[in-house]
Simulated assay, not measured.
Amino acid sequence: PVFTKARAGGVTSLLILPGSANLFGGRGVSVKNVPAVTVQQMKFPGAPYTLKMACGENPKGRYGSRGRAPATRMGEVAGFRRAWIDAAEYGRKVDAYEKKHARGEGGEAPKRDLGLETLAGVLKGDILVQNHCYRADEMAVMLDVGHEFGYKTRAFHHAVEAYKIADLLVADDVCVATWATRWGFKMEAYDAIEENAAILSKAGVCVAIHSDEQRLIQRLNVESAVAIAAGRRAGIDIPQEEAIKWITLNPAKIMGIADKTGSLEPGKMADVVLWSKNPFSVYAIAEKVFIDGALVLDTSDPATRYRSDFEIGQPVGEE
């Protein structure tokens, strides 16, 4: 049901990631928000693979409460480094075998390891890293880990303290996917501020306003407006033509599809939303939503306003 609600909020594409209980949560998937039955029918054509990583309270709390590592933030970094060392070794073995195979030489292929295969893909630059991380000091550490092993972080997600290290993020060309209004729900979220997106944007960071759950995805435009207003109160006036990138072009960059969608340019996919008012107005409604040029939502046409059985519910029988 939430895919339909997201379309009603003007969302044409989504990056869906595994949860944040593990250091490496697994691969994410980019999809086009079209009505379909299977993931394969929705997958965004040509989108690169992504890897979800997580640092901070979630993994250390998950495992520490069970008496297992990583139980501390130091333990998390040790786990990351061990994994990257193993991935680099695995990649070397695979490369050596492929070179021998290309020369017609014998030898047994290394046993396929799906986890190390994904990490090796990151080290080769083929898979984009999406890192769940809240605190500024931890984001800085994760950048250091990336420097040590030669991989780049495409975006820090949530990143409520990113405003403290805007200079580091600019230097490494790392994006931030964050909120404006969510804070204080755990210790590492207590230094969140509504001005985060505006401060980062002014500094030159690629900023996206994300949802991370099924309600906020319906009003990313309003969440962006909150961030704009907070910036203005702090003396940071982000132009609306720049702020609209927070929910259009910049998310596309994070997903690795900015060459295909995210802005109105010749040659790109016709993923277009027509709003009833300025999209940063709380009264704005996505009146028409086009994906690949096809009209998938029209508020004047009930036939496009799909409701699932989950929302309709079950009929009440007579007693």
Rank of each mutant, 00 (worst) to 15 (best):
A177F: 05
I247A: 00
A227C: 08
S201R: 05
L216H: 06
A166K: 07
A162K: 02
D237M: 02
C175R: 03
G184Q: 10
H157F: 00
A227R: 02
R103W: 08
Y190R: 15
A227K: 09
D167R: 05
G231R: 02
I244E: 08
P239N: 13
A162W: 03
E242M: 12
S211G: 07
S201D: 09
H210W: 00
D237F: 03
R182N: 12
G231Q: 00
E213P: 00
D137L: 14
N131L: 13
L216A: 13
Y163G: 02
T248Q: 02
C206K: 09
A243P: 14
A243W: 00
V174G: 02
V222S: 10
K186R: 15
T118W: 10
V122L: 01
A136M: 09
G184V: 05
L249C: 12
D137Q: 03
R219N: 13
M139S: 08
V129C: 07
L114Y: 11
P110K: 12
N221P: 10
A136Q: 01
D137C: 13
A225H: 12
I238C: 04
K202Q: 14
V226C: 06
R233W: 07
F149W: 08
P110C: 14
Q218M: 11
G107V: 13
D113F: 15
G150I: 08
G150M: 01
K245Q: 09
A227D: 04
A109I: 07
A159C: 08
G150A: 08
K111N: 11
I244P: 14
L116M: 12
W183R: 15
F185L: 14
T178F: 02
K245L: 04
Y190S: 10
W183K: 15
Y190P: 05
D126N: 14
D212M: 00
D167H: 05
T118P: 06
V205W: 01
V141H: 11
A198D: 06
G106C: 04
A227I: 06
G150N: 11
R135K: 14
A192P: 03
V207K: 02
L116S: 01
E148G: 15
M139D: 01
G184W: 04
V141W: 05
H210L: 03
L168K: 06
V129N: 02
V145A: 01
V207L: 10
N131S: 15
R232H: 12
V129R: 06
Y190T: 12
R232G: 10
L116I: 11
L128F: 03
H158F: 07
R232S: 11
L216D: 06
G106R: 04
E117Q: 10
I228F: 03
G115S: 14
D212N: 05
A189M: 15
A203R: 05
V141A: 08
T118N: 05
N131M: 14
S211R: 01
S224V: 09
C133S: 12
Y163T: 01
A177T: 10
G204S: 14
G121P: 03
H210M: 05
A159Y: 00
A136G: 06
K124R: 13
Y151S: 02
D167I: 01
I228C: 06
E117G: 15
A166G: 04
A136T: 03
A203V: 05
F185K: 15
S224Q: 07
P239W: 05
A208F: 00
G104N: 08
E241W: 09
V122F: 04
D144C: 14
T181R: 15
G125Q: 02
Y134M: 10
L143V: 04
H147P: 13
